[in-house]
Nucleic acid binder design. Structure first.
Lengths: 136, 136
DNA sequence: CTTGACCTTACCATCATTGGAAGGTTTATA
DNA sequence: TATAAACCTTCCAATGATGGTAAGGTCAAG
């Protein structure tokens, strides 16, 4: 199986497969005489694992750890759970940050006429002028 | 006022002030004889505006637009509101993505013993093995 | 034997920010 | 006054994950 087929089969772009190989996340596969990478179902399985982990927001580094734990048949699930719960906490922190931005902006947009007049509470806020929170 | 003081006064690092200048987000200030940048309260005000916009998650490009609207006394607030509401929508999309990850991971972590045994539903999921959703 | 679809490596770009190196200036202190 | 510390300057590089492109080699079908 060439890289293009491995890509289709795993959902990881050929570009990224080469990149993951270059940073050592996945092992370099064997090559044909003409230097083409050759993949089998094992490699595709690994690529799918990586794809899924990345989709769930794990960093490449975390993915590397999860991958090695996956391949270590004697690992304790506690270690995996720690990574997952740490990641959940990080995601929640990020969500809270974004939600804070949304709340502030929603309030500002709500106060803003959005008409043809130049008066704009959003810009006033950005400029550092305080906005009344009365009624909120 | 030197760049260090402008940095402290605005919360934007000296490094970023120079960067913002280099990409044309802010205007190049005058210089002393010895080539030091000189800032006044107007420039600091602009830097604070930029800082606040970035804190609210606006991209540098959006910030540039907001800045020019801010400095255009005759702009219509509708234009500003459009940018803000578009940004809110983008933030909410991102939040939903992250929340989806959290939900999936929370479910997996909940199913995972987190003990010394090697059996781990989290890794099973990453490996592509389906997990029962019974009871959820 | 040509064409087109594949593969290879090697760069460059993104986005916002930080870091460092190598050198010049100003200020405070010994 | 000498010198050291704390500034400032420009330039270059790295981050993380991915996309793009260019220049070239290979393979299969027509």
């Amino acid at each position: 199986m060439n890289i293009g087929q491995a890509s289709s089969a795993s959902g990881v772009s050929a570009k990224m497969i080469r990149y993951y190989e270059s940073i050592g996340l996945i092992r370099a596969p064997s090559r044909t005489e003409s230097n083409y990478r050759v993949y089998g179902s094992d490699e595709v399985h690994v690529l799918r694992f990586v794809k899924r982990a990345r989709t769930l927001g794990f960093s490449v580094e975390e993915t590397a750890t999860l991958l090695s734990l996956w391949q270590d048949k004697s690992r304790a699930s506690a270690e995996v759970k720690d990574i997952a719960t740490g990641h959940i906490a990080a995601l929640e922190t990020k969500i809270n940050e974004l939600q804070g931005m949304v709340n502030t902006l929603t309030h500002l947009a709500h106060c803003c006429g959005g008409d043809n007049r130049p008066d704009c509470p959003i810009l006033d806020d950005l400029a550092g002028e305080t906005i009344s929170m009365k009624g909120h």
